[in-house]
Computed example of a mutant assay.
Amino acid sequence: MAELKTKANDQSVEAFLQKVEPTKKRDDSFKLLEMMKRLSGLEPTMWGESIVGFGTYHYKYASGREGNWFQIGFSPRKQNFSVYLMSCDAANDLSDELERLGKHKTGKACLYFNKLADIDTSVLEEMIVKALKILESKPK
C-alpha cells in the first residue's frame, strides 16, 4: 500500500468526479462508481484527494504495522484508471480473469487501464466480486 498516509475523509465523491477531465474519463468514472456501488452494496468515500473507496477493513502485517484501508476502489488518474482490489494479488488470484479482461496492466493489488472501452466490463465485475469474497474469507 503505497499511500499509507491516505485516509478516508468527508470530501464529496460526486464533486471530485465532476472535475475529472476529459469528459469521456469523467463518464467512465461515474460508470465505475455505479458498478462498484452495485456490486459491493457499499457507499463510496473519498480516500485522500483522488481515490474513491468502498468499505473498510483492518489489516495487520507480520511486521506489526496495521491500519485501515478500503476494500475496493478506483482513481481516475491522468494517464489511466487505477482499480484497487486490495484483498488479492491480482496477478495470481485473478489470473483467469486477467486473461479475458482486455487491454490492461497490473500491480500487486492494482489494475490499470486507459478506458472502459479497452476492457470487458463483465470480466471486471467478476474480478470485483471475487476480490470482495477473498477479503470476506480472510480472518478478521
Score class of each variant (00 low, 15 high):
M1D: 03
M1I: 09
A2M: 04
T6H: 06
K7W: 02
N9R: 03
Q11E: 12
V13W: 05
E14F: 06
E14R: 10
F16W: 08
L17D: 03
L17Q: 02
V20M: 03
V20E: 07
E21Q: 14
P22T: 04
K25A: 09
R26Q: 14
R26V: 00
D27N: 09
D27G: 00
D28L: 12
D28M: 05
S29H: 01
S29N: 02
S29I: 05
S29A: 11
S29T: 01
F30Y: 14
K31A: 06
K31T: 09
E34M: 09
M35W: 11
K37R: 14
K37Y: 03
K37T: 07
R38Y: 11
R38K: 15
R38H: 14
R38V: 06
R38I: 02
L39S: 04
L42H: 04
P44K: 08
T45L: 13
M46I: 12
W47H: 06
G48Y: 14
G48T: 10
I51Y: 11
I51W: 11
F54N: 04
F54V: 09
G55I: 13
T56C: 01
H58M: 04
Y59V: 06
Y59F: 14
Y59H: 08
K60G: 01
A62H: 13
S63M: 09
G64E: 11
R65L: 14
F70T: 03
F70V: 01
Q71G: 00
I72R: 06
I72K: 10
G73K: 07
G73C: 07
R77F: 09
N80W: 12
N80K: 14
N80D: 08
M86A: 03
S87L: 09
C88H: 07
A90W: 06
A91H: 11
A91E: 15
A91L: 09
N92S: 14
D93P: 00
L94S: 07
L94N: 10
L94H: 12
E97N: 11
E97C: 08
L98Y: 10
L101A: 10
G102V: 14
G102S: 15
H104I: 10
K105E: 11
K105L: 12
K105P: 02
C110K: 03
L111R: 05
F113N: 00
L116W: 05
A117S: 15
D118I: 08
I119G: 04
D120I: 05
V123R: 06
E125C: 07
A131N: 12
L132Y: 08
L132D: 01
E136V: 01
K140D: 06
K140C: 00
